[in-house]
Every structure is written in structure tokens, then in C-alpha cells.
């Protein structure tokens, strides 16, 4: 069930669009912003957009940044773009794996972190880079990573 707040935000978004379906990605993002992911709310969102769940989910599952599975409180996206790869992506990823005890695509058992490899973050000049939630971190080193993770614990 969508909350009244989510509904309102989606309705506001709909006002901007001549075609309801055009708002569907934004609507999914609204719900994801509130919950970290989109589960069976797909039904309710679809209804607001006059789409079927099948239609909305066809769109939702296409895009990489709509999560149809639960994600941790913080989503760590490690850039595996080519510049970061050249600059040591592998080491960064392995370090994060050790520190968090999870593999790529997994969520830590305390529900704090989800680790996702992600295509180029557009931060090639500060490679290797990662993004935690909305924050971008570049020129990563082991010490730096440890320090950053501390902030989120």
C-alpha cells in the first residue's frame, strides 16, 4: 500500500505530464526514495498511472536504478567503468567486500549496506570512484574507504 505522502507526490508529478505513462519512472523513483526499493507497490503505482502492473513492471525492470529487490539502508555503488578499472577498481571492490562481508549485489546482514557495481559514474578524472547514496567519492584508497564507511555505520 502506498502512503498518502507517496500518493500525493505521484499525483503532483502527474500534473507535469500530458501523458500519464511518462510519469512512470518518476513515480517509481518516488516510492524508491521512501522505501529504498519498489515491491508490490508496483500495483498501486500502476493504478495511479492507468497502467497494468505488467506494463509498469516491464518498464521498472528495464532500468538499472529501480530496485525491485530490497536494498540496504545505504547503497554503495562502486564504479566499474573502464577508467576506474584501469585505476584499481578491483582492489577497491575487494576491499569493500572484506570490510562489509558481502559480495557484489548483496546486502549486509544488518541491512546497512548494499554493494552494487555500477557502470561509469562519470568521475573518471577522480578514478577509482564510488557513490554512497547520493554522495560521490573519488581517488579512493584503503584508508579513505575505511574513513568513509565509518560515517555511515
Amino acid at each position: 500500500m502506498l502512503t498518502e505522502e507517496e500518493r500525493k507526490e505521484i499525483r503532483d508529478e502527474l500534473k507535469r505530464h500530458a501523458h500519464k505513462q511518462a510519469a512512470c519512472v518518476e513515480a517509481l523513483k518516488i516510492v524508491q526514495r521512501h522505501r529504498g526499493w519498489v515491491s508490490d507497490e508496483v500495483r498501486d503505482i500502476a493504478e495511479l498511472l492507468e497502467m497494468t502492473p505488467d506494463e509498469l513492471d516491464g518498464v521498472a525492470t528495464f532500468y538499472s536504478q529501480i530496485f525491485r529487490r530490497p536494498a540496504g539502508k545505504h547503497v554503495i555503488r562502486v564504479c566499474d567503468g573502464v577508467s576506474c578499472w584501469v585505476m584499481g577498481y578491483d582492489i577497491v571492490r575487494r576491499h569493500l567486500k572484506v570490510r562489509l562481508g558481502i559480495d557484489a549485489g548483496e546486502t549486509s546482514s544488518d541491512g546497512q549496506f548494499t554493494l552494487l557495481p555500477i557502470s561509469c559514474l562519470g568521475a573518471c578524472n577522480i578514478a577509482p570512484a564510488m557513490m554512497i547514496d547520493d554522495e560521490l567519492y573519488g581517488n579512493l584508497t584503503f584508508e579513505k574507504i575505511d574513513g568513509i564507511l565509518e560515517k555511515y555505520r
Binding site: 506494463e55 513492471d57 516491464g58 525492470t61 528495464f62
Partner: peptide, 9 residues
């Protein structure tokens, strides 16, 4: 029909 679709990519 509206209940069959393509999912993922």
C-alpha cells in the same frame, strides 16, 4: 492484451 509483457533488459 495488457497482462503480458517483456521484462528486464
Amino acid at each position: 492484451g495488457r497482462d503480458l509483457n517483456v521484462f528486464a533488459s
